[in-house]
Each structure stands twice: as C-alpha cells, then as structure tokens.
Amino acid sequence: MHEPRQGTDLDKRHRSPEIMDAPDLPAARLIETLKGLRRVNTVTQSSRLMWPDLLAAARRIPGKGLRVLDVACGGGDVLMELSRWAAKASLDVEFAGCDASPDAVAYARDTAASSGAPIEFFVLKVGRDPLPEGYDMIMSTLFLHHLDEDDAIAFLREAAAKAHDRLVIQDLLRSRLSYWFARLGTRLLLLNDICRIDGRSSVEGAFTRAEAEGLAKAAGLEDAEIVPRFPFRYLIRWVRPDRP
C-alpha cells in the first residue's frame, strides 16, 4: 500500500515520476486514465475555477477575440467545458491546448470533434519546445507538480512572458488532508489503478501555497496572487499590468 514517506508527514515535497507520464504507456491505458481525470475535473469543478479569469481577460480586450492556450491539457476536458460556457455567454474566444503526449492530443482532438467544440490541439513538450506566441491567457491545470522546482520556475517565467494578458495556473496543495482526500476520492470515483497511484504521488509532489509563492517570485512574478481554492487547490494568477 502506498503511504506518505516515513518521517516527512508531507512537510517536504517528494516528487516521483507518475505512471501516466511514461512514454511507453499504451495508448489505451493512457486514454482510460484521461477519462478518469476528466471525472476528477468534473467533480472538483476545475473548469469553474478558471472561468472568472477567462471572463476578466475578455473584459480587458472588448471588441477583440480572446485567445486562450491550455498547457499540458491532457484529454482537453477543461477546455471543452470552457468552450461551451464561452459559446453560451456569446464570447469570442479561440481555444487551443497542447500536451507532450501525441496520444493525449489525438484523443482530445477526437473528443472535441465529436462534441463540436472548435478547439485546436497540438503536441508540445514544456522545457523542450518553446511556448507559442499570440495568446492572451495561458493556463494549466494540475501540471505544475509534474515539474521539478527549476523547471517549474522556467515554465512560469516563459508562460508569463508569452501571455498578453494573464497567466493562470491551477494545481494541488500538498497536505495530509489533501493526500487522504486523493486516496478516498479516487476510490469513490471508481478510477483505475493509474489514477489511484498517481493521485497520491501527485499530492506528495505538489507545492504548498508558500512554495508556490516562492516559485512565482523566483520567476519574476512579484505581483502574482496565490489564491486558495476548494478542494485542496490553489491558483497562481498573474495579470500583466499593461497590455502591449
């Protein structure tokens, strides 16, 4: 049974490779896991946590279409939900998502096409490929904890430099409560073994709010907000003071 490492009580971050990140994971197993993560995002309302910033970004550029990029988008379910809400609100938003996994990108494209969501998906590996230019809002959900500290700082710095309006990062908080929430939640949602094991590893590798604040400052985002969100989440929100 996977338990928190002895003697740490999750006081320190312990990052370990997650199964779903393995390049040789069969596509069928990855897709099964992405479906499980979609269920998690639905229950924890991940899209709803990003929606206020999308609205705020749209208000900052009235009369002009908003361009949104979701980095490490996985199966694209957060973007698809945001796309539906934007259409209902009559917002002019162009959505795109990128992920390091070609299988995840193919699955996201197929799912979006089936639902009629006009979203572009493409392969991009953070740290290897530069983030593209031209997006107003750059976001990511449950990705930051996959990176070591130096790579997380580099990602925040590059994403903020590329975002015309704002950067919004949603991730897990590391704590004993969030650890047990992940253990119980993945079982109650009947998720597969990868989701159950990776869910616990994710919390062990996650950052605290203080650590997230330190990452943002190290990336040069001195005025970034670290906003707590239920359940056991936080947002790193950085808004460009003056749009170019």
Rank of each mutant, 00 (worst) to 15 (best):
F143C: 06
G205W: 04
R196H: 10
D129I: 03
A154P: 01
S175D: 11
G127Y: 10
V227M: 07
F232S: 00
L144C: 03
F95Q: 09
G97A: 13
I169T: 04
Q170M: 14
S140R: 02
F232Q: 00
D171K: 05
K217N: 11
D223F: 06
M137W: 07
L172R: 01
L190K: 14
A210D: 13
A106G: 04
L190I: 15
Q170F: 12
D99N: 12
A152S: 11
V168F: 07
G185C: 12
D193W: 08
K162V: 06
M137G: 06
A108N: 04
D171P: 03
D99I: 05
S115V: 14
P130W: 10
K217I: 13
A182P: 10
A112N: 04
E120Y: 05
V227I: 11
F155V: 06
R187T: 10
Q170W: 05
C98R: 10
P228S: 09
L191T: 12
G97R: 08
P102M: 14
A219G: 04
I153M: 11
A154I: 08
I153T: 05
D150F: 07
G199Q: 09
L172Y: 04
A117P: 02
F95R: 03
H146K: 06
E211C: 11
R109K: 15
K125P: 09
D129N: 11
D129A: 06
Y107S: 05
S202Q: 02
D150V: 12
V123Y: 01
R176A: 12
D223Q: 11
V123R: 07
E225V: 09
P231S: 06
D99R: 10
P102A: 08
R157S: 15
A218Y: 05
E149D: 14
P132V: 08
